[in-house]
């Protein structure tokens, strides 16, 4: 079980603000693998909301997700999909992040 790695780009307008960050953390916590996210400068535990917020990932940021464990492959696939789908925020929204 090697460490798997995937690069993703933040596409939704307001980036990893509180709600998407919580979605990412909740999803990561469903897997037993050790999951980390890096923005190039900072590598953090994807299961910690405070840490994910610290990435300050705005629209366009490239993140590297690594996963190590039994369900690493599934974890990466579902996390990648979540980010690519813009955390369900891709419909036109002009009134700022919801929370």
């Amino acid at each position: 079980m090697a460490t798997l790695k995937r690069e993703v780009k933040i596409v939704n307008r307001y980036g990893l603000h509180a709600r998407p960050a919580m979605m990412l953390v909740e999803l990561a916590n469903r897997y037993s693998s050790k999951i980390e996210v890096s923005n190039g400068q900072l590598t953090i535990d994807a299961k910690s909301i405070m840490s994910v917020m610290r990435l300050a990932a705005v629209q366009g940021t490239i993140l590297t997700i690594t996963a190590d464990g039994k369900d690493a492959e599934d974890a990466l696939a579902s996390l990648e999909k979540l980010v690519q789908d813009g955390f369900g925020e891709m419909e036109p929204a002009d009134d700022g992040p919801s929370i």
Partner: peptide, 16 residues
């Protein structure tokens, strides 16, 4: 109410 999810997330944050 979803703002409280973030608060709960912080309280359950193992790193913190």
């Amino acid at each position: 109410a979803s703002i409280f999810d973030f608060h709960l997330g912080l309280l359950e944050d193992k790193v913190l």
